[in-house]
Simulated scan of single mutants.
Amino acid sequence: MPGEARVRVPMTRQFGNSILNIYIPSLILMVISYLTFFFRTSIFDVRVMVTLTALLVLATLFAQASNSLPNTSYFKMVDIWLLFCVGVTFLVIIFHILIDNRLFKEKKTTQVKPFAMPAYREIQLLGLRGRCRWSPDLSVEQLELVAKVFVFFLMTTFMIGYLAYIIS
């Protein structure tokens, strides 16, 4: 028709801004916190400070991303991603503390034992000795290996599931 004009407006999402400003920086920070497992075990302060700095930057990035997106009553996928990054970084800090505690116990030269432990002996008599207390006999190297493998497996599994969900 001569008096009619048609305008076509494509309604597609632009992912470039989110990928460059949210996903890549948070992934890099999460990898940096994971790489602290490969620092020398004896420099606990450096390991924790790097991981804590990454955690603080992730928290700031999360707040910035939340403020730039519209408020909704449900979780957005970027919220789930950033919460996972913060959670993994926190888990890395927990592992560093466990590793440092195990290292400290191995370095101890004197051991103080109480004179009598009636409660423990009663438990031992009941046959519950192995079930009443948790005392892992992992060395520092074994605990570090468990931490490296567990966090790597967790990160890889989440990323594969996250990408599969987004693509589908």
Rank of each mutant, 00 (worst) to 15 (best):
D45I: 05
T51N: 01
I19R: 15
Q142I: 05
S73A: 05
M159N: 03
Y165D: 07
D137K: 04
L27C: 12
F84V: 12
V31D: 00
G130A: 14
K113G: 01
D137H: 02
I43V: 12
L61P: 08
V140F: 00
A116F: 00
L91Q: 15
T53N: 14
M1C: 12
P114E: 06
Y23I: 06
P136A: 13
E4L: 06
F104I: 09
I28K: 01
A59H: 13
W134I: 07
N17C: 06
G130S: 14
Q124M: 13
S33Y: 10
F115C: 02
L69T: 14
F104L: 12
N17T: 14
L61E: 12
I97N: 10
T36P: 10
V146N: 07
F153R: 12
S73N: 07
L154A: 09
M117S: 04
T72I: 09
G3L: 14
L52I: 13
V9H: 04
M49R: 13
W134E: 02
E144N: 10
N21M: 08
F153N: 13
I32E: 10
L163I: 14
A63W: 05
P70V: 13
R102F: 00
E122Y: 04
I97W: 08
I93L: 10
A5T: 08
P118Q: 00
I28V: 10
L103N: 07
P136K: 11
L128D: 05
P10L: 01
T41S: 04
V88D: 05
F152T: 12
P25K: 01
V151L: 10
F37T: 12
L125H: 03
A59N: 15
F15Q: 05
F37N: 13
S73M: 01
L61R: 12
F44N: 02
F90K: 06
L58I: 13
M49K: 13
S168I: 14
R133P: 01
M117R: 04
F90I: 10
R121K: 07
F90G: 08
L35G: 11
P114N: 01
L55V: 12
K108V: 02
A63H: 05
T51P: 03
T53M: 15
T36L: 09
S42I: 09
A119R: 03
T156K: 09
K105L: 06
V151Y: 09
T60P: 06
R6I: 11
L82R: 12
A59D: 15
I160Y: 14
F38P: 02
W81L: 14
F44S: 00
R102V: 00
L138R: 05
F153P: 02
T12L: 04
Y162W: 11
V48Q: 09
G130V: 04
I28H: 00
L20T: 14
A5Q: 08
S73P: 00
Q14G: 05
L103E: 04
S26E: 03
A164P: 07
K108R: 11
D79L: 04
I24S: 01
